[in-house]
Amino acid sequence: MSTSPDSLTHRPEPGAGQIRKGLTLSALNWLGVAPFFLFALLFLILPTATLMIGAFQDADGHFTLGNIAKLFDDSILSAYWISFEVSAASALGGTVIGLALALAAIQGGLPQWIRPTLMTFSGVASNFAGIPLSFAFLSTLGRMGLVTVLLRNYADFDLYGTGFSILSFLGLTLTYLYFQIPLMVLIVTPAIDGLRAEWREACESLGGNSVAYWWHIALPILWPSIMGSALLLFANAFGAVATAYALTGSSLNIVPILLYAQIRGDVLHDQNLGYALALGMIVVTGLSNAGYIWLRSRAERGRE
């Protein structure tokens, strides 16, 4: 729509001078976005590209697939596997609980003030990640944490006696949920808003109950959005460093922490293996983001 005034000013049969003027103009146009592309090249694309190239080189700079092959050694593969499990568990939990909360606030027939409150809080909590978040969960579920102590004193329940630890897989997943759930609420809300009241009325007038509505109408419409959001949450957890590092130090062997230790002190004793480790992370987060974008475009097409 914004191109229509442009096409009106375009005259047919331009003279040679006009063409030359048009050329310099378009060169000038490119100059307008040059700072942005220069910045992106220097601080985003080249640094990533140099790692990707390094992943396929040996210490002398010759081409090799050896680094990639070493990613499948047991110690590194297990780091990827634990990362995968934590990210998948927190993405799954975040998707289900976030969806339930968003549905409750939007369609649950609750008082008006619930929704804006949930949205504002989600904006805050989805950005309350990293080191302060790990402190908060240590104060809650750590050995001396409030919930641990209350359970021991009043419910006679020894949380740590069950083998639970905030430094474990379950503890890390519970902590990640604190930013995963709000993120889900924020992403899925527009999709839920897209459900039209007429669809439910049409379903009811045809004799369908609530279960039929959700199973045959709402869920199939929301499905691409839900799956896409889950992939985004997965990538979000997979790249997170600070929360896990402050919470577990290096006791939990996940990829971002392994990479952090590698950058700090070359713990793998192989620079190029480090680059391959980084490449592996980009592949995982890249694939899940690509899936998210594809599913989102499907969801948008379905809505038209």
Binding site: L46, P47, L51, G239, V241, I263, G274, A278, M281, T285
Partner: peptide, 15 residues
């Protein structure tokens, strides 16, 4: 949002 921060900074240190 796709490339994790730790990978970007690793690239800076190499480049």
């Amino acid at each position: 949002l796709v490339i994790p921060a730790i990978v970007i900074v690793f690239g800076y240190l190499k480049l």
